Amino acid sequence: MSTLSTRARIAVTAAAALLLGGVAVGYTALSATPEPDIESGTVSGPRLQVLSNGRLSAVSSTDPSGPREVTEERCDRAYTAGGTTACLRPVSALKAGELAVLDSSRRELKTVPLIGFPNRARVSASGRMVAWTLFVDGHSYAANGFSTSTGILDTKSGALVTSLEDFASFVDGRAVQAADRNYWGVTFTADDNRFYATMSTGGHRYLMAGDFAARTVTALAENVECPSLSPDGKRIAYKAAVNGDPQQGWRLSTMDLATLAVTPLAETRSVDDQPAWLDENTIAYGMQRSDGVNDVWTVPADATGTPSVLVQEANSPAPL
């Protein structure tokens, strides 16, 4: 893990901003998914948002293999809820990345300059709260020594937290001030104040319960990454490191928040994504093929059934 403090990271990354243009092309070549061009059509009725070759798109929820609406809005990661879209725009050879907050007509409401490589994005059910995660150092959660930057924006009040490392953190009732803390994978509750996220420190990865107004995060359980809260607020879907070792991959699982009981799902391949609930019974996630192309898959949330492809050549699923 990085041993830089928040202020030191800001100073280092600010100085590195001028270098981003030089490394962006190489990073894109290594990490981007070379999805082919998708023919754009018209979609009516209930829809599912995805990214198609990095472009904000929508497919029919009832016919996801049918026509696909493809916009010109480019995002490395995206999520939409409550009429608000969080789009993490790509780092380019000439420009550092940014968060773009869009309304239901894709009009830009706000942008937040960011330094790092886009990785996770989430919006609260009401559309008020927006969260994002970027890699500052490293490109994988399985590697040692990576560093992340996770922030939250309240679109109603304008309150902006650029790093969750500024919040007071507690594990087993004790304050944690270690410089190696990293946060990622935020998901919001219905009250637009509380949230869940992952915090890593000292070789442990915790499910943290956060309070935005109080600026605190408190550990609830270990070996939980990239949580996603169910529509009823009673469970999270997440990725759990196999045998507690991320280098062995991750098992998609759910956890009952009242009992902390864990249910591994029928997807046994390693899933490195923040899952999304399509409804109370179905979880969606991105999987990369051997050729680098992404597909959106689904699996039942109760450990039954088998995984199946929902949308080919797409990622970042979000029910609209």
Rank of each mutant, 00 (worst) to 15 (best):
S105A: 09
D211A: 06
S31Q: 10
Y27V: 15
V161E: 06
V296Q: 13
N144Q: 10
A14V: 09
T80P: 12
G45H: 02
V91S: 13
R235E: 14
N182G: 04
A8I: 04
S270D: 14
G158S: 05
A240W: 01
T198H: 11
P118A: 00
G97S: 15
D166Y: 06
W297V: 14
I283E: 00
S57Y: 01
C226V: 04
A301G: 15
D256C: 10
V112Y: 00
E313D: 15
D272A: 09
A221D: 14
V176Y: 00
A125V: 13
S163C: 04
P300W: 03
S228W: 07
P67F: 13
M208F: 00
R120L: 03
G173Q: 02
A266F: 11
P36W: 07
T187R: 04
R107W: 05
M129L: 15
Y285N: 01
T155M: 05
D154R: 13
T268Y: 01
N281E: 06
P319G: 12
S169R: 11
M199C: 06
S253Y: 08
K239P: 04
D192L: 08
G54S: 05
A190F: 09
T198I: 02
V50S: 05
V130I: 15
F135C: 01
A8S: 03
A258K: 15
Q247E: 14
W297C: 01
E73R: 15
T62P: 03
A143M: 00
A29F: 15
E313G: 06
A301N: 10
Y183L: 08
M1Y: 03
V101C: 08
D273S: 12
S52C: 10
L278V: 08
G41L: 08
T216K: 06
T306V: 10
D232E: 15
L160Q: 04
I38C: 02
T84D: 00
A197S: 12
A143I: 02
R77Q: 14
L4G: 07
Q177E: 10
S230G: 08
E313R: 10
D191W: 01
K156A: 09
S126H: 11
A168Q: 12
L260Q: 12
V242W: 07
T148I: 04
A96E: 02
I283K: 09
G151C: 07
A190C: 14
G185L: 00
S157Q: 09
S228F: 08
G127D: 03
L51E: 10
R7I: 05
E313A: 06
T6F: 08
A213I: 05
L278G: 06
A284Y: 02
L153M: 12
